[in-house]
Design a protein around this nucleic acid. Structure first.
Lengths: 235, 235
DNA sequence: ACATGTATGTCGTGG
DNA sequence: CCACGACGTACATGT
C-alpha cells in the first residue's frame, strides 16, 4: 500500500467524465492495483477512483516550459490509470508532501453477524414465528425471476411465500408481488399466500402489502436469536 | 487528515456486529471526523468505518499484565469511535509503523458530466429521439408518488410518460409502471403511453416492460451529445 | 425529519 | 460471464 499526499489534478473518463482541479489530496494505491483520491471529507468515499483490474503507468514529469503560463504549477509526475472497460484516470501531480509504501500482507477478513442472511436462517428454523403449525418447505426457492426467501406451508397446508428484509420497504413488496404472480401460475401449488417479514416495515410498504393481500410480520431479531440460544441450551 | 499504519483489531456494533482480528492495516482519520480501516485490497472500500458525525476518544494503552496470555500482543492504544445512532467502533492498536498528519484544506470539489440528469436534459431537448413529431410537455412532471422524468406527446398528440435511466433495470420498469397507473387515473390526460429509455436495457427489464405495453428505447449518449454540439455550432 | 431516486454505486452468489 | 439481490448501502433532493 502506497500513501501519497500531494497537490494533484485528476480527470476521469469512463461511465461518466469528471474533473478535479489542482488541490492537496491523499492518493491511495493498494496492492490490489486500485487507486483512489481522497479529500479530507466525504467520509470513506474517495473523490475519484479506479477499481481493479487496472494498470498504473507513471510517466516522467514534463520539463518546465519557457512559455509556461505565469502562476501555473510545475508538475512532478503524470499518472495514467487504465481500467478494464477502457476507462481512464489521469492524475497530474504537483508538489509532493509525503510518499510512503507499506507491506500489509493478506487480511484475515471481516466477520459479520446480523445481516439478512442470518435473519432468514433464524426464521427458517422457526417458521412458527408466522403462525402455529407452519412448516418450512424450502429456503431460496427458485423461480424463473429469482429466489423466494422462504417457501412455507401454513397450518392448513397452503403454500406461503415469505420475503425477508431487514428494512421493509416498498421495493420488497414489489419483489414479493412478482414472485407471487409467478408462483400462482403453478397449478401444483394451489393457493399461494404472501408474507412480508422485516425488522421494521415502513407505513407505505405496509399499506401496499395489505392492499395486495400480503400479510406483514415485524420480527424481533434479538427475540429470534434468544430462541436460538434457548434451543441450544435445551440440547 | 491522519494516516496510521498499525496492527489493529476492530469491533463494530451498530446495524450489525462485525469483528476484525488483529492485523496490519491503514487507519484513516479525516478532518470531517470519519474513521476508516483499510486492508490492502477491496478497492476503495474500507473493512470498517464510522461516518460523521462521530467522536473519537483515544484511551491510554492498558499497562502490560503480569498474567498476560503468552503470545498476546502489547497494545499501544485503544480508540473508541461513537456514532450518532449509538453505534461504536472499537480499535485496539498494537505495533504502530507509521503515524502522520496532514493539512489538506477544503477541496474545490468534483465536477461531473454524463450522469442521468444530463441524459435527461439531452432527451428533453430532443424528444424527436423517440419519434418524429414528438414534443416535450414537461420535465420532472409531478405525480403524487414522485416526478415522471419526461412527459411528452407523440405525433398523434397522445401523452407519453418517459422514464430515463443510464442502465435500464427492472426497478425502472416498476417505477414507470407506478407512474403510469397514476397518470391513467387522470381523465384530462386521456390515454397515456409509457417509454423506458436507457443507454442499456437488461433483457429481463425489456421483457417486463414489453409485457406491460411499455416501449423500450436505447439511447446513445454520444450521439445525443453530438446533436447538442451540432446545435451549438449552428448558432 | 421523511420519502424518493440516483450511484463511476460495490459486492457476493448462483446459474 | 451475466443476472439478481443485499448493503452498516451513501447521497442529494424535494416535501
Amino acid at each position: 500500500m502506497r500513501l501519497v499526499i500531494a497537490r494533484c489534478q485528476v480527470d476521469y473518463a469512463g461511465r461518466l467524465t469528471a474533473h478535479l482541479p489542482m488541490a492537496k489530496r491523499l492518493i491511495l494505491v493498494k496492492s490490489d492495483g486500485s487507486v483512489s483520491i481522497h479529500a479530507d471529507d466525504r467520509a470513506y468515499k474517495p473523490l475519484n477512483w479506479m477499481s481493479p483490474p487496472c494498470t498504473l503507468v507513471e510517466l516522467p514529469a514534463p520539463a518546465p516550459q519557457d512559455d509556461a503560463v505565469p502562476g501555473s504549477e510545475q508538475l512532478s509526475a503524470l499518472w495514467e490509470v487504465r481500467g478494464r472497460d477502457g476507462d481512464t484516470l489521469q492524475i497530474s501531480l504537483g508538489e509532493v508532501f509525503h510518499d510512503s509504501s507499506h507491506e500489509l500482507g493478506v487480511d484475515p477478513g471481516l466477520q459479520k453477524d446480523g445481516v439478512e442472511a442470518h435473519l432468514q436462517a433464524l426464521l427458517a428454523e422457526h417458521p412458527e414465528t408466522f403462525g402455529s403449525g407452519w412448516t418450512l418447505v424450502r429456503r431460496e426457492h427458485l423461480t424463473p425471476i429469482g429466489p423466494v426467501d422462504l417457501l412455507c406451508r401454513d397450518a392448513a397446508g397452503a403454500y406461503v411465500a415469505v420475503e425477508v428484509k431487514r428494512r421493509g420497504d416498498i421495493d420488497g413488496v414489489e419483489q414479493l408481488t412478482r414472485y407471487l404472480e409467478l408462483l400462482r401460475r403453478d397449478p401444483l401449488l394451489g393457493t399461494v399466500h404472501g408474507v412480508f417479514a422485516a425488522q421494521q416495515i415502513k407505513p407505505q410498504a405496509r399499506t401496499l402489502a395489505l392492499d395486495r393481500g400480503i400479510s406483514c410480520v415485524t420480527v424481533d431479531y434479538d427475540v429470534l436469536r434468544g430462541m436460538d440460544n434457548a434451543d441450544e441450551r435445551l440440547f
